[in-house]
Design a binder for these strands. Structure first.
Lengths: 342, 342
DNA sequence: TGTTAGCACTCTAAAGATATGAGTGCTAAC
DNA sequence: GTTAGCACTCATATCTTTAGAGTGCTAACA
């Protein structure tokens, strides 16, 4: 479609615009990059590129700005995947080791790093071990009326909640109950502990109806809690570094959207299927961010979606850098998870 | 010191400035509020107030703006504690019931409500049950090499972590160990489980040195985790609604400070002793927020500090409203905690 | 046929000039 | 003690001018 020279010029314009945020003129290209062409020639080419829909002019006497179509071509064909500098790599490693006690903190760190490295807002959607299996449950006595119900999954996670128990129930009885239920649910993926199964548990055992209703309720609650997807945001501050958000109104607008966890969740879920997804400007169907671009990467472990991370920013985004960073983070997380889960 | 008329005029100026963020002129006061005085008279009074250090002029032909000294007088003497409207009360209750499964979520909601109601940044420092007592510990078997160590406190909380155990150790042995340690620590406030005590536990029991070192380590870790103070922020978005933060640079500045959890923690800890503390402008010793005011309230349960909440904003802050909201939240949280802990 | 120098033209953004108006301080009269 | 009147100040808004970056077009050149 475009000859090599046009492509080259377009690429330079895009990259110049990405780094300066200023409309790019023919002279700039001629001066900054040694193409062996005069401004006039470049001007002619730019004129063509505009006609083809790749460039736009904010006004007659400004330079030109890449269109969404140009960015699309750029990320699909022109982009050259870069590598992180040793410095950056060290920075990332440092941030990660700073805090990483729990899964949540790892995801939070991921969001933070992503935003720091890309100077944009980052979002991480963590699927809490959807594949975890029920191992067993156990009661820990608390006082005469209460015990703590613990559910242990095969990845070594414990979820617990307080349940009410009938007065005078002995520990052995509780152990017996726990064992009975455990045998029914053992080895099940939490995701597959359906309502039907819970109901089956309920009817199957008839020792103490009232206690059981509350127990099944608690199991359900813990199951949901364990499976809950969590959203982590990063870089609402970096946002302010982007010239596009010099205007406070725009910032408010975007922050308003990000504040709604539900919206962010939907946004991320929408792009979860493909490994790497880049949405440019109005390609995105969510209102309010149609002048933004989003780069999203979804990661799996044994086929299961572990999480999805995304960077949201102006269409003028360092796509190459973003992809490189995400790639590095992916590898990092991968080894981290694999050693963790042995 | 000031006669009643001066006080009244000063109060009106402060309140007008708080609500409009514009320097207040003598005519405005005369027109808006029916004092039975002409602008000229008010002008004379204002001139006096300026001489006394209560008012400042941004420039000759602007109105006047209250000084820090004026705000100090205002919060100490002039302020009239308001009441929340039914509407606001309903709003708060709604936000609280929206999510309140865990302690953390309650504190997070508190921060959110505080910022929404006051249109300022809010901070909540939660002392995780400093008074909780060790009840007992228990091992939940996981696999051949690992068990989950659970520590149960008298408030029904369970903290857990995975510990490595020697191959072939039987559940009964683990139970025996757990019992032995539990007897040593039982009834102790977690805060009082000192390093010495842990060392005593360590030397006291000589069954399996290596296992024990790791166990004591884990207990220490869980103790620290349980006692960890947590910081919750709210309303970084509301910040942008304040005219003082129309300038993106200022926003960045403040957000930069709030991003450092350590700084926020120190900031809040500094004002923890008194019940209600209002710091105006440069009264605050922390750099970067010296053109801001902070209203902070610390709450106790049985003498123990449960948490401290604060609102940070421009010196032009609705002090009355902030205090009213905090007061309401305090009562709300109090009943919530008391019913929770019976 | 592709490339380039030259030049008139366009249009924004910065700089400068002018006008408006809110607010003050002071004086003199009530 | 209060107030009307008036000159004065100064930030802000508006208009005007200027400078400069960039374009499109034409004509000449390889």
């Amino acid at each position: 479609m475009l000859n090599d020279r046009k492509k080259k010029i377009l690429q330079l314009i895009i990259e110049d615009y990405i780094s300066t945020a200023e409309p790019v003129g023919s002279r700039t290209i001629a001066r900054k990059y040694d193409l062996g062409l005069s401004p006039a020639t470049i001007r002619n080419e730019m004129s063509d590129l505009e006609l083809l829909g790749y460039l736009e002019q904010p006004h007659t006497s400004a330079g030109r700005v890449p269109s969404a179509q140009a960015y699309r071509l750029y990320v699909d064909n022109l982009i050259e995947p870069g590598a992180l500098s040793d410095n950056e790599r060290a920075l990332i490693n440092g941030w990660f080791t700073e805090r990483r006690r729990s899964l949540d903190e790892i995801f939070q760190s991921t969001a933070k790093i992503l935003s720091r490295m890309t100077q944009n807002v980052s979002m991480v959607l963590a699927n809490r071990d959807a594949g975890a299996r029920f191992r067993y449950m156990k009661f820990l006595p608390l006082d005469e009326h209460h015990a703590i119900l613990c559910i242990i999954t095969d990845d070594g996670n414990v979820d617990n909640c307080v349940v009410e128990i009938p007065l005078g129930m002995r520990p052995e009885e509780l152990d017996y109950l726990a064992g009975k239920i455990s045998r029914l649910l053992e080895g099940r993926e939490l995701a597959n502990i359906s309502e039907e199964l819970l109901n089956a548990v309920h009817t199957n055992i008839s020792e103490d109806k009232i206690l059981f209703t509350s127990l099944v309720q608690s199991i359900r609650k813990l199951r949901n809690k364990h499976m809950e997807q969590r959203v982590f945001l990063g870089g609402t501050k970096q946002l302010l570094n982007q010239p596009e958000f010099r205007d406070v109104e725009k910032v408010k607008n975007l922050l308003g959207i990000l504040e709604e966890e539900r919206v962010v969740r939907d946004l991320l879920k929408a792009g979860e299927d493909s490994g790497l997804k880049i949405t440019i400007g109005s390609e995105n169907k969510f209102s309010g961010i149609q002048d933004c671009s989003m780069v999203q990467a979804t990661y799996r472990l044994n086929g299961q979606i572990v999480g999805t991370m995304a960077v949201l920013g102006p269409t003028r985004m360092e796509y190459g850098k973003v992809i490189t960073v995400m790639d590095y983070l992916h590898k990092y997380l991968k080894t981290m998870f694999e050693t963790e889960h042995k």
